[in-house]
Nucleic acid binder design. Structure first.
Lengths: 377, 377
DNA sequence: GGGCTTCTTGAATCGTCAC
DNA sequence: AGTGACGATTCAAGAAGCC
């Protein structure tokens, strides 16, 4: 590293410090353009829904439903909404790191337009996720199904971006050891979590539950990552990011929302590093070559390996390869060969006999890894 | 009615007779253009998803996943897919009655484009509905969330069309007297319902479950209505429409699918008029429940329920209601009615005969609940 | 037959690293 | 940038096989 680059880095860090963990006031697109490119790991966006409400809606008891009729949710036409969507998605894409991902939440009023535009701009959809509401608002007129969900789209920056963060093992563990599905069940934001002003009115009409953001950030970010929310509103994204040990950047136009979010986030107590750590699986473990087991004396050259049912056996050679008759190769290649398959995980396929029982050689790899961890500690 | 109008009507009926309850062979758009305008009550469309698969996918046991790689699912680009979508939606809109509605099913690969195009063409989205799968294919590589749902869009022809059919009370009654929500739980189509050819291979790669179509048609059509499916495939729409006393029209290009669908539909026994009747609109009338058991086939429409001492019996109907003579209602209400009580838990009151013994229907509900356990949350 | 295990399969945009 | 080696990864049902 040269001194010049070091200065560059320092200036970048310094520039970062100005906007990390802050709320930028102003228009979403203009603010996005002020941020450095490729600087954000995860974007969560809850854009205006373009609700096309005609007149007021009344409950059966004639009470008026407090509809989302704020000025920021009014668009003249689909064309105008599409142009707005395209503009902010483009600006968001510029600030996203190459391996960053974006989440957008919406309802049937806008989500189809957002999804199509995401695809048009080159984003690559990874999943659509359904937030099933335990307590949705009823359909008061009885003319449709009760609208009981919202839709989230999760997308990477490009089709070719394979290095995005997905904490698969953590998600699976949190779901009783079953893969996390695309249908999530959460209550809507009510009670003590719902921000109210001094009159007892809700601060923001569409405040999202923290549990939803927590799952999103636990699934697709790492501690220390930068999380951007271009429609910050009451700051749920910032509050959850801070609590989970992620940095946040919020963009918001309305001062009343900024005030509420600022106070809210200030009151958040971050969890400790141990609590926010992401559970990693085998993928996160350091690589160990089979040969190093032989070198370490955990398996002697000449030892015999077999599969779990003792259908095939192979001999360990001093160079860390296996041999069956005249054939030789890696533990993986020979495992594939004897089974007639394209591929094979030799670590779990091959076993060694210890005290009369067959044990996968993966258990020996564990020994090596524990030794490595012990040295590092 | 004048004689002229009567003749016109007759000729219309005569013309109808040629295509009602038939499968039209040929290109979807060309066939749609041969149908009279404003002649269809409900359209159910399962268009190609444009899956964009690249390499092979293997399960952890190295077996190869049988991908949907048929020629009909291949499109050169989003632009080509959009043009295709626009063309068939326009042709479908012409044949739809002014108060008709359209259902389209898709996945995240295509549904956003379909939804946006629906809006562009003037359709008015009533709901998006989520089909949650009890048994979806896992994500074998652990790189994303398990894709556990598909999305349906339900739309009317115009924003101004307020007279569309929605059997609100029947849906509510079938859902334990709660409004039917937009998240529906069904298994994918397997077992005896899945059509196989003489080699035991599946006839169609994406056959939809009949329970899904049953709910759609029970919700949005009346007996005698005309139901059109422009991507008929193996004919699930036709089979369910016939069983429920609706007319169907199918459009399909491939002869093998037509042959399978023809035989399948010929074997369907229509239910009696009493079983397919939808409950009247009066909200004060007794209501019913347990529709999901019926949709799931755990209890067949027409089956007889009785109380533990066989003092009373009632008949199950396709919309999830019970009938005793001229009376109809939820399991709770009819249980109360026959006993002369204010309230009654129909789940424990009503029994079904299995292997000569009476078993409370609550035991069947447990089956459904077991399906739901472990899902979501 | 019954209970148990094993096998099969489903609309799927399903790697990463070193050389 | 292209190539090849490493080695990580699955849930629910129904059907079939086995004692």
């Amino acid at each position: 590293m040269s001194a010049v680059r070091l200065v560059d880095d320092l200036s970048a860090v310094s520039a970062k410090a100005e906007w990390l963990d802050t709320i930028l006031k102003g228009d979403c697109i203009a603010a996005l353009e002020r941020l450095p490119e490729k600087s954000v790991d995860v974007i969560f966006a809850d854009p205006p829904y373009n609700l096309q409400l005609e007149g007021d809606l009344h409950r059966p008891d004639q009470s008026k439903v407090d509809a989302v009729d704020d000025a920021w949710d009014q668009f003249e036409s689909f064309e105008v909404y599409d142009a707005f969507t395209r503009a902010w998605l483009l600006a968001a894409r510029r600030v996203l790191k190459p391996n960053g991902t974006i989440w957008v939440i919406g309802s049937y009023h806008n989500i189809f337009r957002v999804g199509a535009k995401l695809q048009d701009l080159g984003f690559w959809i990874l999943n659509d996720v359904i937030w099933r509401k335990t307590n949705p608002m009823p359909n008061f007129r009885g003319r449709r199904f009760q609208n009981a969900h919202e839709t989230l789209i999760w997308a990477s920056r490009d089709q070719s971006a394979k290095g995005y963060t997905f904490n698969y093992d953590a998600m699976k563990a949190a779901n009783d050891d079953l893969q996390m599905r695309t249908d999530w069940l959460f209550p809507i934001c009510t009670g003590g979590e719902r921000l109210k002003d001094e009159n007892g009115d809700k601060v923001h009409p569409t405040q999202k539950p923290e549990a939803l953001l927590a799952r999103i950030l636990m699934a697709s970010s790492k501690p220390g990552d930068v999380v951007l929310d271009p429609f910050f509103g009451s700051g749920t994204t910032g509050a959850v990011a801070k609590r989970l040990g992620r940095h946040f950047v919020g963009i918001e136009r309305e001062q009343s929302y900024i005030d509420a979010a600022t106070a809210r986030i200030a009151a958040v107590e971050p969890l400790g590093a141990g609590e926010t750590a992401v559970m990693g699986g085998k993928r996160a473990e350091p690589r160990v070559a089979f040969g190093s087991l032989v070198e370490a004396g955990l398996i002697a050259p000449g030892a015999e390996l077999s599969d779990a049912r003792r259908r095939w056996t192979a001999q360990v050679r001093a160079d860390g390869t296996l041999a069956i008759g005249r054939d030789a190769g890696s533990i993986h290649r020979l495992g594939a060969m004897v089974q007639g398959l394209e591929a094979c995980n030799g670590w779990t396929f091959w076993h060694v006999e210890r005290e009369g029982r067959l044990e996968p050689i993966d258990a020996l790899r564990r020994v090596i890894r524990d030794q490595m961890a012990g040295v590092g500690a």
